[in-house]
Design a protein around this nucleic acid. Sequence first.
DNA 1: CAAATTTAAAAGTAATACTATCAATTACTA
DNA 2: TAGTAATTGATAGTATTACTTTTAAATTTG
Lengths: 224, 224
Amino acid sequence: MKYLLQDLKVRINEKIYIKDPESSALGKRIIEHSILMIQEVGFESFTFKKLGEKIGSNESSIYRYFENKHKLLLYLTSWYWGWLEYQLVFSTNSIANPEEKLKKAIEIITRSVKEDSSFSHINEVLLNKIVINEYSKSYLTKEVDEENKEGYFSIYKRLVMRLSDMIKEFDSQYQYSSSLSSTIIEGALHQHFLREHFPSLTDCNKNVTPTTYFMNLVFNSIKK
Amino acid sequence: MKYLLQDLKVRINEKIYIKDPESSALGKRIIEHSILMIQEVGFESFTFKKLGEKIGSNESSIYRYFENKHKLLLYLTSWYWGWLEYQLVFSTNSIANPEEKLKKAIEIITRSVKEDSSFSHINEVLLNKIVINEYSKSYLTKEVDEENKEGYFSIYKRLVMRLSDMIKEFDSQYQYSSSLSSTIIEGALHQHFLREHFPSLTDCNKNVTPTTYFMNLVFNSIKK
DNA sequence: CAAATTTAAAAGTAATACTATCAATTACTA
DNA sequence: TAGTAATTGATAGTATTACTTTTAAATTTG
């Protein structure tokens, strides 16, 4: 898997950035250290000025890559969903049995990332944490409809639909495959968050993972 | 119901505010118009300065009630959850049958608020929309653990636990009542949001409500 | 090697998120 | 009902954020 991903580039909507950060050393440094910094101080306290200082570069240089930090968040989270989508497709592609396939899909989507693997400048473990803590903020805005029209969320939407399709393939009678798919993807992030910060609101802990819970939920609720 | 709620005051953790907004006319105007304004411009663009202008009062006067807009959001959402909890308890209290009780609970928690009812200065319909769009932002912060310790989320937690208890009452064998409860409460907000902004990611629409979906999900997944 | 592009540095602007001071108003209390 | 306390409004001020602009130096590319 590692090897296969080596040269994969996640394709991000070009309107999200001004200049492709993958196209230069500075761009890659911006991505690398923005992940470290957002994880460290949180998205609210994160600024381009601080990031500039950290990477020994100037604020204005960063603005030539991203219009603002919201767009950078869109970039990072799009990258994450694209990376996850790749894993999903790669791992389920060869599975013919719909049940097995769906099981594998849920496993990949709900597990937490524990190994920083394939991309030199992108730490997927931290990026996973950023998605858990910050992804909602990228769409819970007044501009969501415009940005959706521009296609800023298309990778995420494609992922939800892929899982939805697998649910339908497993049980063509089930009526809520899209809602269930979006519930799993969003709900998994939420359960990971609760496990960390509100343990009394979840049954997930050291032993029980969100994967266990969602696997049980899905396979009990459909195809009875 | 309306009449019964008339004199109910939702009890909010005293550390959330500096001065109780229920204790003065100005305080009530702050609450009333902050709801209108946050709904109108979104939480990010909302400022105490703008609110002051709107209500013909001074920025600094608002700061005497709330430390910052984050605390105000905590106040508003706590109030909402407290109000919802009251409805839940009131409506399910007399139901003895665990299945019926749970059904009623899910209905109350997942429905959208369509009538501005009981409190003169609080518009519950708009507040419901604010909770859908902004609630996550109140806990997806670096300060969440401290604030949780201070009890800022206790009403919400109590609500999740109440629903969790009802699930357990209905099926004592089910192992994930807390996770399921938190999934329903958070997931309902999410499905309402998707219905509005990402219709392709949900099966909820004009006819199918989040209530329909969650009712199906819950009663198929437990007590088989 | 020259031209084009990219980056760094510095300075500037408007808005945000407050804090402090003081005077005017209102409320409460003896 | 006068006196005191509490509340509010007005003004001003600070530090930070979220940018934009300009210019010059460095780097890349053809």
